[in-house]
Amino acid sequence: MKHIQTLETRDLAASAKNGGCGECQTSCQSACKTSCGVANQQCENCSEDK
């Protein structure tokens, strides 16, 4: 293998410039109700600033 392989991920620094629309789901509203996490939330508007 190559020594280091990088997965495609959303650029968090770039999202600081054009993220924050607030249209996404509230973290605890779907299935957990007892343990907050934001990692599994979907961006409603992500195609613009992936």
Binding site: A13, G19, G20
Partner: peptide, 9 residues
């Protein structure tokens, strides 16, 4: 990893 939350979230 590509369409997840922005940094604000």
């Amino acid at each position: 990893l590509t369409g997840g939350p922005c940094i604000y979230k």
